[in-house]
Simulated scan of single mutants.
Amino acid sequence: MSSQDVTQRFLFEHADVRGELVSLNQSYNEILAKHTYPEPVKALLGEMLAAAVLLSTAIKFDGLLIMQARSSGPLSTLMVECSSQQEVRAIARYSDDLSGEGLAELMPDGVLAITIDPDQGQRYQGVVALDGDSLADALAGYFDSSEQLPSRFRLLADGRTARGFMLQALPANRQTDPDERKETWNRLSVLADTLTVEELMALDNQTILHRLYHEEDVRLFDERSVSFRCSCSAERSGNALVSLGREDAFLLLEERGGEIEVDCEFCNTRYLFDRAALVELFEKARDHAQSLH
Protein backbone atom coordinates (compact mmCIF):
# COMPACT_ATOMS: atom_id res chain seq x y z
CA MET A 1 0.00 0.00 0.00
CA SER A 2 1.17 3.53 -0.77
CA SER A 3 2.72 5.37 2.17
CA GLN A 4 1.20 8.64 0.98
CA ASP A 5 -1.37 10.42 3.08
CA VAL A 6 -4.33 10.59 0.72
CA THR A 7 -8.08 10.47 0.50
CA GLN A 8 -9.85 9.24 -2.60
CA ARG A 9 -13.49 9.37 -3.63
CA PHE A 10 -15.37 6.74 -5.62
CA LEU A 11 -18.83 6.82 -7.17
CA PHE A 12 -21.20 4.15 -8.47
CA GLU A 13 -22.21 5.19 -11.98
CA HIS A 14 -25.64 3.55 -11.92
CA ALA A 15 -26.58 4.00 -8.27
CA ASP A 16 -27.03 6.88 -5.84
CA VAL A 17 -24.14 5.78 -3.66
CA ARG A 18 -20.69 7.19 -3.19
CA GLY A 19 -17.69 6.30 -1.06
CA GLU A 20 -14.33 7.44 0.19
CA LEU A 21 -11.08 5.75 1.16
CA VAL A 22 -8.44 7.43 3.29
CA SER A 23 -4.92 6.40 4.21
CA LEU A 24 -2.89 8.25 6.86
CA ASN A 25 0.73 7.57 7.65
CA GLN A 26 3.05 10.55 8.00
CA SER A 27 0.38 12.94 9.29
CA TYR A 28 -0.78 10.35 11.85
CA ASN A 29 2.78 9.73 13.01
CA GLU A 30 3.57 13.46 13.23
CA ILE A 31 0.59 13.92 15.53
CA LEU A 32 1.57 10.95 17.70
CA ALA A 33 5.17 12.19 17.90
CA LYS A 34 3.99 15.31 19.74
CA HIS A 35 2.70 13.27 22.71
CA THR A 36 3.30 10.00 24.52
CA TYR A 37 -0.03 8.24 24.19
CA PRO A 38 -0.81 4.66 25.33
CA GLU A 39 -1.44 2.24 22.49
CA PRO A 40 -5.26 2.10 22.89
CA VAL A 41 -5.38 5.91 22.74
CA LYS A 42 -3.19 5.95 19.64
CA ALA A 43 -5.59 3.54 17.95
CA LEU A 44 -8.76 5.46 18.75
CA LEU A 45 -7.16 8.78 17.84
CA GLY A 46 -6.12 7.30 14.49
CA GLU A 47 -9.66 6.10 13.85
CA MET A 48 -11.03 9.55 14.59
CA LEU A 49 -8.44 11.16 12.31
CA ALA A 50 -9.52 8.90 9.46
CA ALA A 51 -13.17 9.61 10.23
CA ALA A 52 -12.66 13.39 10.23
CA VAL A 53 -10.99 13.27 6.83
CA LEU A 54 -13.80 11.10 5.45
CA LEU A 55 -16.44 13.52 6.73
CA SER A 56 -14.57 16.59 5.51
CA THR A 57 -14.84 15.27 1.97
CA ALA A 58 -18.55 14.49 2.37
CA ILE A 59 -19.50 18.07 3.24
CA LYS A 60 -19.12 20.99 0.84
CA PHE A 61 -17.62 23.81 2.88
CA ASP A 62 -14.59 26.05 3.26
CA GLY A 63 -13.42 26.07 6.83
CA LEU A 64 -12.94 23.59 9.63
CA LEU A 65 -14.56 20.32 10.65
CA ILE A 66 -14.14 19.48 14.33
CA MET A 67 -14.87 16.07 15.84
CA GLN A 68 -14.83 15.90 19.62
CA ALA A 69 -15.67 12.90 21.79
CA ARG A 70 -16.06 13.35 25.54
CA SER A 71 -16.75 10.90 28.32
CA SER A 72 -16.42 10.41 32.07
CA GLY A 73 -14.27 7.34 31.45
CA PRO A 74 -10.48 6.95 31.51
CA LEU A 75 -10.24 8.56 28.06
CA SER A 76 -11.98 11.88 28.68
CA THR A 77 -11.40 13.63 25.34
CA LEU A 78 -10.57 12.89 21.72
CA MET A 79 -10.47 15.90 19.43
CA VAL A 80 -9.61 16.13 15.74
CA GLU A 81 -9.69 19.14 13.45
CA CYS A 82 -9.67 18.77 9.67
CA SER A 83 -9.77 21.71 7.29
CA SER A 84 -11.48 21.74 3.92
CA GLN A 85 -7.93 21.41 2.49
CA GLN A 86 -7.55 18.15 4.49
CA GLU A 87 -5.03 19.57 6.95
CA VAL A 88 -5.35 17.77 10.28
CA ARG A 89 -4.35 18.08 13.90
CA ALA A 90 -5.53 16.12 16.95
CA ILE A 91 -5.24 15.68 20.69
CA ALA A 92 -6.33 13.22 23.39
CA ARG A 93 -6.73 13.62 27.16
CA TYR A 94 -6.78 10.63 29.46
CA SER A 95 -6.27 9.65 33.09
CA ASP A 96 -2.89 8.49 34.34
CA ASP A 97 -4.36 5.15 35.41
CA LEU A 98 -5.91 4.47 32.01
CA SER A 99 -6.84 0.84 31.48
CA GLY A 100 -8.97 -1.05 29.02
CA GLU A 101 -9.24 -1.11 25.25
CA GLY A 102 -11.80 -0.06 22.70
CA LEU A 103 -14.41 2.65 22.71
CA ALA A 104 -16.87 1.07 25.14
CA GLU A 105 -14.25 0.57 27.88
CA LEU A 106 -12.31 3.78 27.40
CA MET A 107 -15.22 6.16 26.75
CA PRO A 108 -18.34 4.77 28.45
CA ASP A 109 -21.43 6.97 28.19
CA GLY A 110 -19.52 9.14 25.73
CA VAL A 111 -20.89 11.87 23.48
CA LEU A 112 -19.65 12.78 20.01
CA ALA A 113 -20.00 16.32 18.67
CA ILE A 114 -19.39 17.12 15.00
CA THR A 115 -18.98 20.83 14.29
CA ILE A 116 -18.72 22.59 10.94
CA ASP A 117 -17.01 25.97 11.35
CA PRO A 118 -17.12 27.66 7.92
CA ASP A 119 -14.93 30.59 6.95
CA GLN A 120 -18.16 32.41 6.18
CA GLY A 121 -21.58 31.75 7.62
CA GLN A 122 -22.87 30.13 10.79
CA ARG A 123 -21.39 27.23 12.70
CA TYR A 124 -23.35 24.00 12.71
CA GLN A 125 -23.06 21.29 15.33
CA GLY A 126 -24.59 17.85 15.61
CA VAL A 127 -24.33 15.71 18.75
CA VAL A 128 -24.83 11.98 19.13
CA ALA A 129 -24.23 9.42 21.85
CA LEU A 130 -21.21 7.17 21.35
CA ASP A 131 -23.42 4.13 20.97
CA GLY A 132 -22.17 0.86 19.55
CA ASP A 133 -18.94 -1.04 19.91
CA SER A 134 -16.89 1.33 17.79
CA LEU A 135 -16.54 4.86 16.50
CA ALA A 136 -17.63 3.56 13.09
CA ASP A 137 -20.93 2.34 14.62
CA ALA A 138 -21.51 5.70 16.32
CA LEU A 139 -20.92 7.61 13.08
CA ALA A 140 -23.26 5.34 11.14
CA GLY A 141 -25.94 5.97 13.76
CA TYR A 142 -25.38 9.71 13.52
CA PHE A 143 -25.91 9.82 9.76
CA ASP A 144 -28.77 7.35 9.75
CA SER A 145 -30.71 9.46 12.26
CA SER A 146 -29.74 13.11 11.89
CA GLU A 147 -28.81 13.34 8.21
CA GLN A 148 -31.17 10.70 6.79
CA LEU A 149 -28.26 9.51 4.65
CA PRO A 150 -27.57 5.83 5.32
CA SER A 151 -23.82 5.49 5.82
CA ARG A 152 -21.36 2.78 6.69
CA PHE A 153 -17.82 3.21 8.02
CA ARG A 154 -14.77 1.05 8.55
CA LEU A 155 -12.05 2.66 10.67
CA LEU A 156 -8.75 1.03 11.58
CA ALA A 157 -5.53 2.30 13.17
CA ASP A 158 -2.56 0.57 14.77
CA GLY A 159 -0.33 3.43 15.95
CA ARG A 160 1.48 3.61 12.59
CA THR A 161 -1.19 3.64 9.89
CA ALA A 162 -4.81 4.78 9.96
CA ARG A 163 -7.30 3.69 7.32
CA GLY A 164 -10.89 4.64 6.69
CA PHE A 165 -13.64 3.45 4.37
CA MET A 166 -17.00 5.16 3.96
CA LEU A 167 -20.04 4.17 1.94
CA GLN A 168 -22.90 6.68 1.79
CA ALA A 169 -26.28 6.84 0.12
CA LEU A 170 -27.05 9.95 -1.94
CA PRO A 171 -30.39 11.66 -2.64
CA ALA A 172 -32.44 9.97 -5.36
CA ASN A 173 -31.20 10.75 -8.84
CA ARG A 174 -30.10 7.73 -10.83
CA GLN A 175 -32.50 5.40 -9.04
CA THR A 176 -35.88 6.84 -8.08
CA ASP A 177 -37.75 3.65 -7.16
CA PRO A 178 -37.52 3.24 -3.33
CA ASP A 179 -37.39 -0.56 -3.44
CA GLU A 180 -34.67 -0.53 -6.09
CA ARG A 181 -32.65 2.00 -4.07
CA LYS A 182 -32.98 -0.11 -0.93
CA GLU A 183 -31.91 -3.29 -2.73
CA THR A 184 -28.86 -1.54 -4.19
CA TRP A 185 -27.83 -0.07 -0.85
CA ASN A 186 -28.21 -3.41 0.92
CA ARG A 187 -26.16 -5.21 -1.75
CA LEU A 188 -23.32 -2.69 -1.70
CA SER A 189 -23.33 -2.64 2.12
CA VAL A 190 -23.14 -6.43 2.36
CA LEU A 191 -20.19 -6.46 -0.05
CA ALA A 192 -18.47 -3.73 1.98
CA ASP A 193 -18.80 -5.89 5.09
CA THR A 194 -16.69 -8.59 3.44
CA LEU A 195 -13.63 -6.32 3.48
CA THR A 196 -11.21 -7.77 6.02
CA VAL A 197 -8.95 -5.87 8.40
CA GLU A 198 -5.91 -7.22 6.60
CA GLU A 199 -7.20 -6.09 3.20
CA LEU A 200 -8.05 -2.59 4.35
CA MET A 201 -4.66 -2.12 5.97
CA ALA A 202 -2.57 -3.69 3.21
CA LEU A 203 -4.22 -3.09 -0.16
CA ASP A 204 -4.28 0.05 -2.30
CA ASN A 205 -7.61 1.73 -3.04
CA GLN A 206 -7.98 0.45 -6.59
CA THR A 207 -7.39 -3.13 -5.48
CA ILE A 208 -9.87 -2.78 -2.62
CA LEU A 209 -12.59 -1.52 -4.95
CA HIS A 210 -11.92 -4.28 -7.47
CA ARG A 211 -12.01 -6.83 -4.67
CA LEU A 212 -15.39 -5.55 -3.41
CA TYR A 213 -17.15 -4.25 -6.51
CA HIS A 214 -15.66 -5.83 -9.63
CA GLU A 215 -19.17 -6.45 -10.96
CA GLU A 216 -20.20 -2.80 -10.45
CA ASP A 217 -19.45 0.24 -12.59
CA VAL A 218 -17.33 2.30 -10.21
CA ARG A 219 -15.49 5.54 -10.95
CA LEU A 220 -12.40 6.24 -8.82
CA PHE A 221 -11.47 9.92 -8.58
CA ASP A 222 -7.99 11.38 -8.22
CA GLU A 223 -6.26 11.25 -4.86
CA ARG A 224 -6.17 14.32 -2.64
CA SER A 225 -3.33 14.88 -0.20
CA VAL A 226 -3.77 14.93 3.57
CA SER A 227 -1.20 16.60 5.82
CA PHE A 228 -0.56 17.53 9.42
CA ARG A 229 -0.67 21.24 10.11
CA CYS A 230 -1.19 23.00 13.42
CA SER A 231 -2.93 26.35 13.15
CA CYS A 232 -1.29 27.77 16.26
CA SER A 233 0.94 30.86 15.92
CA ALA A 234 2.60 33.59 17.97
CA GLU A 235 -0.09 35.97 16.72
CA ARG A 236 -2.95 33.77 17.94
CA SER A 237 -1.26 33.24 21.30
CA GLY A 238 -0.74 36.99 21.59
CA ASN A 239 -4.38 37.65 20.78
CA ALA A 240 -5.37 35.29 23.59
CA LEU A 241 -3.32 37.40 26.02
CA VAL A 242 -4.85 40.64 24.69
CA SER A 243 -8.31 39.17 25.28
CA LEU A 244 -7.47 38.97 29.00
CA GLY A 245 -7.32 42.76 29.14
CA ARG A 246 -4.26 44.91 29.84
CA GLU A 247 -4.50 44.88 33.62
CA ASP A 248 -4.94 41.10 33.95
CA ALA A 249 -2.28 40.37 31.33
CA PHE A 250 0.39 42.43 33.10
CA LEU A 251 -0.67 40.98 36.45
CA LEU A 252 -0.16 37.51 34.97
CA LEU A 253 3.24 38.61 33.68
CA GLU A 254 4.23 39.65 37.19
CA GLU A 255 2.97 36.38 38.66
CA ARG A 256 5.00 34.41 36.10
CA GLY A 257 8.23 36.20 36.92
CA GLY A 258 8.40 38.45 33.89
CA GLU A 259 7.66 35.92 31.15
CA ILE A 260 4.40 34.30 30.08
CA GLU A 261 4.50 30.90 28.44
CA VAL A 262 1.66 29.95 26.09
CA ASP A 263 1.75 26.30 25.03
CA CYS A 264 -0.18 24.77 22.15
CA GLU A 265 -1.85 21.59 23.38
CA PHE A 266 -1.92 20.14 19.88
CA CYS A 267 1.73 20.42 18.83
CA ASN A 268 3.50 21.41 22.08
CA THR A 269 4.96 24.55 20.52
CA ARG A 270 5.76 27.12 23.23
CA TYR A 271 5.35 30.86 22.71
CA LEU A 272 7.08 33.23 25.16
CA PHE A 273 6.04 36.81 25.93
CA ASP A 274 8.10 39.18 28.09
CA ARG A 275 7.18 42.73 29.12
CA ALA A 276 8.38 44.27 25.85
CA ALA A 277 6.38 41.78 23.82
CA LEU A 278 3.29 42.39 25.93
CA VAL A 279 3.59 46.17 25.55
CA GLU A 280 3.87 45.73 21.78
CA LEU A 281 0.80 43.49 21.70
CA PHE A 282 -1.40 46.05 23.44
CA GLU A 283 -0.03 48.93 21.37
CA LYS A 284 -0.92 47.04 18.18
CA ALA A 285 -4.37 46.21 19.57
CA ARG A 286 -4.92 49.90 20.41
CA ASP A 287 -3.78 51.04 16.96
CA HIS A 288 -6.04 48.48 15.29
CA ALA A 289 -9.04 49.60 17.36
CA GLN A 290 -8.39 53.23 16.49
CA SER A 291 -8.13 52.43 12.77
CA LEU A 292 -11.66 51.04 12.85
CA HIS A 293 -13.11 54.37 13.98
Rank of each mutant, 00 (worst) to 15 (best):
A58F: 08
L11D: 03
T184M: 15
R160D: 08
K182A: 15
F250T: 11
D179R: 14
G126M: 06
K182W: 12
Y271L: 14
I59N: 05
D133A: 15
D158F: 08
R123K: 14
Y37Q: 06
A51F: 08
T115C: 12
Y142K: 07
E235F: 07
L156K: 04
E198Q: 12
A15K: 09
E180N: 01
R174S: 07
F282G: 05
A157N: 10
A129R: 06
L278S: 05
S3A: 13
E223A: 13
T115H: 10
L130F: 01
D137E: 12
L191P: 15
P38M: 03
R224T: 15
F282Y: 04
A51G: 04
L167G: 03
R70M: 04
G110P: 12
P74A: 01
S71F: 03
A136Y: 06
G159E: 13
Y37P: 11
R163N: 09
P74C: 04
R229W: 02
L149T: 07
V242D: 00
M67G: 02
V22P: 06
E87I: 10
L278F: 06
G102N: 12
V41T: 00
S2F: 11
R187S: 05
I59R: 06
I260N: 03
L54R: 03
T36W: 01
R154E: 02
T115D: 00
Q122A: 10
V127F: 04
L135P: 00
A140D: 01
L253F: 05
E147D: 11
L220K: 05
G110T: 12
F266K: 05
A240H: 01
E81L: 14
